[in-house]
């Protein structure tokens, strides 16, 4: 029983943490004074991503019927024809989720003296769903 609990706990920790995949990262030019004397800020925006193939595979686990499994795969194949195109991470249903970053940067740094910006596009992967994340870190120098 204790062993089972340990396994469950380990699995829970793994699933709760999720695996992080880095897709893209860019750096802007760096004003060393602003970086070393300024205040570091970090903005993270995220949207739920869905992997329909994994959803279908998971759904198949709940049925014993081969016919139902086959139908589920057929439906998934049909839907995937409507979702063609290059992907980074899983698909999301709102492409504008990252657009709030520009305003968030202004709120973090009202002086608008910003340098050393790093832009990161990453995915926190869980079973079936994922967090499609845009993370911006930068340094804000106080206004004169």
């Amino acid at each position: 029983m204790k062993k089972n609990n340990l396994v469950l706990l380990s699995l829970a920790v793994l699933f709760l943490n999720g695996c992080a995949f880095l897709h893209q990262f860019q750096m802007s030019s760096i004003d060393s004074e602003a970086v070393m004397t300024g205040k570091k800020f970090e903005i993270i925006v995220s949207e739920t991503g869905v992997n329909l193939q994994e959803a279908a595979d998971t759904a198949k686990l709940f049925t014993q019927s081969q016919q139902t499994r086959k139908e589920m795969q057929q439906i998934n194949d049909i839907i995937s024809m409507f979702q063609m195109g290059p992907r980074t991470g899983n698909m999301v249903f709102n492409e504008k989720y990252a657009d709030s970053i520009m305003r968030a940067i202004q709120l973090e740094c009202p002086s608008r003296k910003i340098s050393g910006l790093t832009s990161i596009r990453e995915t926190a992967k869980y079973p079936v769903v994922s967090g499609e994340i845009v993370r911006i870190t930068g340094y804000c120098q106080k206004g004169s």
Binding site: I30, S32, I120, T137
Partner: peptide, 30 residues
């Protein structure tokens, strides 16, 4: 394949700034 965060990139800006304390770092290839 276990990787739970990407924090290892976070100190790179500061590393570059320390190598150039009185100037600007430009032309950055990442």
């Amino acid at each position: 394949l276990f990787n739970f965060d990407n924090k290892y990139v976070d100190n790179m800006v500061m590393d570059l700034a320390r190598q150039c304390p009185k100037g600007r770092v430009e032309g950055i290839l990442t």
